[in-house]
Amino acid sequence: MTEREKMQAGAWYSCLDPELSALRAQARRAVHAHGTCDPDTRSDMASALKSLFARTGQDCYLEAPFHCAYGFNIHLGDRVYFNTGCVILDTAPVQIGDGTLFGPNAHIYCAQHAKDPDERAQGLEIARPVTIGQNVWVGGGAIILPGVTIGDNAIIGAGSVVTKDVAPGQTVVGNPARPIE
């Protein structure tokens, strides 16, 4: 099994693998094209970046700068908006529902690194998917960690670190993020 196959299967893999490095380089080129394209001609998203994603719904908009690890694991519903400085480290599938909005510098992380320092030095990590429902608002500077599911209509407060699932309609704030009424 290749390291990419291990990553896609949710098993431990080495991110130092040459194939994965080449795929990240391809994503960096697409991100660069998006970030350096004249805003008047870029439209909602540079074509190089849009073609990299697994799915891009209608009327999605990504402000520059934007960064992703691979791109091919990103699934955007309709009317998804990312403000400037957002990052998606998509080592696993990232599903984002219709009408979801991200404030500036919001981050989504799918990779979890090995706890053992020798294994970390070998580049060992495991990928956990992130699922975000419809009409979610993710405040600026929020971080969503690996394996988290956020339900429809939820609100993630600015600067929150989301370590656990968020129920539909729930508002969470803080580090770690906790529900408020």
Results as ranks from 00 to 15, higher is better:
Arg4Tyr: 10
Lys6Pro: 04
Gly10Ala: 06
Tyr13Lys: 03
Tyr13Met: 06
Tyr13Asp: 02
Cys15Ser: 15
Leu16Ser: 08
Pro18Arg: 13
Pro18Ser: 12
Leu20Asp: 00
Leu20Gly: 01
Ala22Phe: 07
Ala22Leu: 11
Leu23Trp: 03
Arg28Gln: 12
Val31Gly: 02
Val31Pro: 00
His32Gln: 15
His32Ile: 03
His32Asn: 13
Ala33Gln: 05
Ala33Cys: 08
Thr36Arg: 09
Cys37Leu: 07
Pro39Ile: 14
Pro39Asp: 10
Thr41Phe: 06
Ser43Asn: 15
Ala46Leu: 13
Ser51Ile: 05
Phe53Leu: 15
Ala54Ser: 15
Ala54Arg: 14
Thr56Ser: 15
Gln58Ala: 15
Tyr61Ile: 15
Glu63Asp: 12
Cys68Phe: 05
Cys68Ile: 13
Asn73Ser: 11
Ile74Arg: 09
Ile74Phe: 06
His75Trp: 12
His75Ile: 13
Arg79Gly: 03
Val80Ser: 11
Asn83Trp: 11
Gly85Pro: 01
Cys86Met: 12
Val87Gln: 07
Asp90His: 04
Asp90Ser: 05
Thr91Leu: 07
Ala92Ser: 11
Pro93Cys: 10
Pro93Val: 13
Pro93Ile: 10
Val94Ala: 13
Gly97Thr: 06
Gly97Met: 03
Pro104Phe: 08
Ala106Cys: 09
Ala111Met: 14
Gln112Tyr: 07
Asp118Thr: 11
Glu119Lys: 13
Ala121Asn: 13
Gln122Leu: 13
Gln122Tyr: 07
Gln122Arg: 15
Gly123Phe: 06
Leu124His: 12
Glu125Asn: 11
Ala127Glu: 10
Val130Arg: 01
Thr131Leu: 00
Gly133Tyr: 00
Gln134Ile: 09
Gln134Trp: 07
Asn135Leu: 06
Asn135Thr: 10
Trp137Lys: 05
Val138Met: 03
Gly139Arg: 05
Gly141Arg: 08
Ala142Glu: 04
Leu145Gly: 07
Gly147Glu: 07
Thr149Ala: 04
Ile150Phe: 04
Gly151Asn: 07
Asp152Ser: 10
Asp152Tyr: 08
Asn153Ala: 01
Asn153Trp: 02
Ala154Lys: 01
Ala158Ile: 04
Ala158Gly: 14
Val161Ser: 02
Asp165Lys: 08
Asp165Leu: 10
Val166Leu: 01
Pro168Tyr: 01
Gln170Phe: 00
Val172Gln: 02
Val172Gly: 00
Val173Asn: 04
Val173Gln: 05
Gly174Leu: 09
Asn175Lys: 13
Ala177Ile: 13
Ala177His: 09
Arg178Ala: 14
Pro179Arg: 12
Pro179Phe: 06
Glu181Met: 11
